[in-house]
Every structure is written in structure tokens, then in C-alpha cells.
Nucleic acid binder design. Sequence first.
DNA 1: TTTGGCACTCGCCCCGCCCGAGTGCCAGCG
DNA 2: CGCTGGCACTCGGGCGGGGCGAGTGCCAAA
Lengths: 339, 339
Amino acid sequence: MLSERRLEVLRAIVQDYVGTEEPVGSKALTERHQLGVSPATVRNDMAVLEEEGYIAQPHTSAGRIPTDRGYRLFVDRLAGVKPLSTPERRAIHNFLDGAVDLDDVVSRTVRLLAQLTRQVAVVQYPSLTRSSIRHVELLALSPARLMLVLITDTGRVEQRVIDCPVPFGETSLADLRARLNSRVAGRRFADVPQLVQDLPESFEESEDRATVSTVLATLLETLVEEHEERLMIGGTANLTRFGHDFPLTIRPVLEALEEQVVLLRLLGEVKESGMTVRIGHENAYEGLNSTSVVSVGYGSGGEAVAKLGVVGPTRMDYPGTMGAVRAVARYVGQILAES
Amino acid sequence: MLSERRLEVLRAIVQDYVGTEEPVGSKALTERHQLGVSPATVRNDMAVLEEEGYIAQPHTSAGRIPTDRGYRLFVDRLAGVKPLSTPERRAIHNFLDGAVDLDDVVSRTVRLLAQLTRQVAVVQYPSLTRSSIRHVELLALSPARLMLVLITDTGRVEQRVIDCPVPFGETSLADLRARLNSRVAGRRFADVPQLVQDLPESFEESEDRATVSTVLATLLETLVEEHEERLMIGGTANLTRFGHDFPLTIRPVLEALEEQVVLLRLLGEVKESGMTVRIGHENAYEGLNSTSVVSVGYGSGGEAVAKLGVVGPTRMDYPGTMGAVRAVARYVGQILAES
DNA sequence: TTTGGCACTCGCCCCGCCCGAGTGCCAGCG
DNA sequence: CGCTGGCACTCGGGCGGGGCGAGTGCCAAA
């Protein structure tokens, strides 16, 4: 077990290193923090901390830097979530109010998060499967082609073009549209499959039934994970502040950011509620081994409809970042609830 | 005027420099190209080319590298557009077919372009103002709130929430929807303003007129440039290949890429048809002074509804990049025409 | 006009040096 | 037993000098 003071030393190391980006030595530590002990004592504590794997030296005769494990301890036991300042809070409101549609909300959120944390921001669009249907629209593009448009209560819109096996009359179309809406409007997406399964049979014309089945198939297909998840990233310019050695670091991170699948999985691991912090090697994806990911779910009501977060160097200001992420998530939730 | 051989020397310099990323000297040039003259002659030619501002030496006693002006001459007079190989062409088809909606088309295009050119790809969504309206949908979210959904012939969907000054009945809504669609469906967006201007007056109830005006105002506002333009970028990981000194270079480029306004202006300068190449300082935006932008319009018919292009180092393979950009633009145009 | 020759320039690489921050260890002190 | 000051040691980073070689410009000859 680590004594109180050793934890204090670890905290000091993390704070200094985050601030200066340079390995921190025993002397500098005692000067910058009121630890009440001499450098020699700190050195002993450091030796213990190193033994336990919380800190490391890049090379002999250099100061110490925290390891992933050290950051983990720091986040879990030594640091709280720093609440935002009033100006920052106001900035969030100013920035997010006035968004005209969902795309706008998401893109503003991304920019805001990137700016507040000075890191890379990732925002997932509200998941379809966890949203409710506001409206389903069917348009005839030509006699044998339909367009299906889905609108969710979170403002998301999806469309699909459908090739009908058989030409489909305008009356049947209006009919289908009405029946479809009366069944699914206001319902959760997750419930849609059983709500519509008997729909084809309720049509008299057998040709129409085929078309109705096709439409429903497309509708259900739209809800398949993988396809339905979208996200937006921003603040990649902040990657250039990652460190001096970043040519090597930045590459895999940029690659990871382009792999939506990777990011989605990353966010997918977020616990339903509450904030998740993944530090360095805790990230399953190799390219992100030298980064930390802070993420949290957001939603219009109590429950999360999607996630957002930031990707930054393991050497990041955890309390501040966590505060910003949480505050933004809450406010985005409010915005969505209003619209 | 430059002699034939001097132009040939310039071409050789550009090609070698693009390949090796290193200043090219007279000896190396004669070895790698059949110029039929000695290094000394080439040196004389180089001196002339330098005097004219087509090439420069990074420092005394180093080889020459092309200047922006040199690249310009190369692009204008020395290089054609390199057609893609059959496998590449096939790759485009494989990659782009199977896109389910417009977002999918755009995101696939971005990835494809980035992969083909190994540079940063930028794709603008089809412009609203140059598209036609396929359908306008009005939904009542609550008695006093409407949602306006616009669907274009290029598959783009825009939605806006409208707060009504006065509650608006379901009958009036259906009425408005019908009248609106009969007027604008199939028409160009640009024509919308005059098509709808007398619409409010055609309503009897004076309260309804206010709402109708609000709806129309929102509709027109949606078409305002700035707001209506969207784009997607990808392949930023390719920035890491820009050069050895890239920490300095990459930063402003990433920043520029995040500034949608900058990019839109960049693409906006593209001539209606035909490819545009902006080299180094020809780019108005300072952060892109060490990059070149190759862009072209694309569209479903003969005319362009939007633009796409790539951003790369001035030291890029112009013929190849131009070939890829053109080929992708053409195929995307086809895809849009089909859907 | 082209060519070979030649002296010259200058950036880069390599090496060795020194400096100093930081360490680990130890003996002494409370 | 824990803390402290002292001390020898380590080693990375910065600085400067020297050699190398690619590349140049100039010139005289073909």
C-alpha cells in the first residue's frame, strides 16, 4: 500500500509532467510543491513508485514520467472532475444555441469540444436503434422506384432508394405510408420489427405484397448496426501539439480516426452511463496505445442515445478534460430534448 | 523563350524530384534521363531555368528543386492527364457501387480518392441551389412546431424545425404541403423564390398566412449559401507523408481542413467545368501555401452540382493525381444520375 | 553551342568533448 | 525507523571541428 505522501508525490509528478511535458526530477518537485520533505526523501518515494510501476524514467539520469498505470491511479483516486468556469460554460451555450439541424448540432459539438479540450473530438450521431420514429415517408421516384425517408425524434434523417419488384400504384403507396406511420410513429426503433411483420399480409393485391415486403426489408436493414452508426470528428490540428516526437505518434492516430469502425468500437465500450477513461494501452486498438480516450454517453432524456468524447495524449489534463466532456454532453442532451 | 531541351530538363527535374523528394543535380539528371547532352550543358540550362524562376536551389551547392512557377509550367505545358490503369478503374467501380445513400456515396468517394492519390481528399455535397427539388415534406411535431424536410434529386436531405407563430391545423398543413409540392417539385432550387412568393396570399385564414410565410422563410433560408454547403474530408493520415519537415507544414494544413469556409472558397474558385490546379502560393489561403489543390466539378448530367478534389504537397504526381480526380468525379456523376 | 576540366563552396555527418540534471547510496541525525 | 545532506556516478544533449562529397560556376577548347 502506498502512503499518503507517496500518492501526493505521484499527483505532483503527473501535474508537473502534464504541464511541462518534461520528465520531472526530485529537486524540481520539492520546489514547485509544498511537500514538506527534502528531495532525497522524494527520491526514495520515487524509487518505490517506480518499483510498483506507477512511474518510469525514459533513461537513466533523467526525471520520471508517469506510466499508464500511474495515470490510472491518478484518475481513479487522486483527481476529481474539474467543473468548468463560468465563461467556459457560457461559451458552450453560445456555441451550441442556434444550431439549425442535427448535423449542425453535431458539427458544433465537435468543434466546441475540440476547442475546449484542445484535443481531438469525436461525436457519435444519435443511434437509430435507441431512438424513436417520428415519421416515415415514402416517395415515388418513378413507378418502380421508391424512396424511404426515416425521421427520428433526435432529428436524424435517413433515406434509402428502393427498387420495387413490381410497379406500385399511388393509392397503394399512400395506403402503405399511412399504415406504416400509424404503426411505427412514436415507437422505439427496437420495436419496429414485430410491429410491421404482418404488414404485407394485410394487403390484398399479391403484387403489392412483394413490394411491401421489400420496403420493410429495407427499413429493417437501415437499422442494422454498423450501417446505421455515424460519427464526426474534429480538432485534428490539435494532434500537432501531442509532442516533439509526434511524427511517429500522429500517423497511427490519424489512421485510427479515419477508421470509423475502430472509433465506434472505442465509443461502444463506454459504459451506459458515467464517464469512461481509457489510458494508453488500455485501448484495444494498437494505434491508440499512446493516447487516452475520455468518453461519455449523452441523450435527450435520462438514457444515452449516443456517445461523445475526446482523444488526446496520455499526458493530458484529465480533470479538465473530463469536466469539459461531461459539461458538453449534458448540454447537447438538453438541446436534443428541446428540438 | 525556353528551348525544347530546357523544357525537357525542367520536366526531368520535376519528375525526379517528385520521385525522390531530394534536390536533383545535373549529373543525376543525365544518368536517369536520355537527354543526349552532358552534365555541363544541363548545368547551363539549369542556370537559365533558375534565372527565369522555374527552379531554385535550397542552398548553394545543392541540387535544384522546382518552384511553384516551375510546377505551373510543368502542369500547363509538359504534362498530360494520366489515365488510370484498368485495375484502378475497376477499383473505383467496386468501391463506389453499393452505396446506400448520399452520405454513403460521399464518404466512399472521399476514402476512394484519398486512397488512389494517397493524399487528402475533399468532397463537397451536391449544392442545393444547383439541384432540383424532389419533394418537400411538412410534419407537425406539435401544434405549434413543424418540421420541414427537403429532398433533392441528388439524394440530399435537409431538415429544419419551425416554430409557428400560431397553431396550425392538420388540414391546413396537408393543404400547404400539397400546394407547396405542386409548385416546386421537380423545379430547380434557384427558381423556388418566385414560385412560392404569392403562396401566403392564396390562404384564406389570416393566421394561416403568417405560418405559411414563416415556413417559406425557413425554406428560402435553407438555400442560403454558407449554410447549405457541406463537405467531407478524408485521408488526413496521408499528411504524414508530406515531408520530413512536416511538423511545421502539417499544422496549418490541418487547420485549413477544419475551416470549412476556407475549403469551400477553395473549391468555389473551381471553374465550372474542367479541372483546376492551384499550386503553392496560388492558393489564396496562407496555410495552404506549400500545398497544391487539384479539383474538378462533378454532376449527374452535363453540369456540375458540386466539386471534389485533393490537397497534397506541391511536390505531387500531377498527371496521376489529375487522372484519379477526373476519373472519380466522372463515376460519381454517373452514380448520382442513377439514384 | 557543347563539352570536359577544375577549383570552390557548403551542407551533412561523424566524432569527441564537456556540462549538468538527476540518480542511488550511505552515513548521520532525530 | 524514517528523514536528510553529502557525494560519486551516469548519461543524454549541446557544441565545435574536421572530413567528405555532391553539386556548382567558370573557362578554355572542340
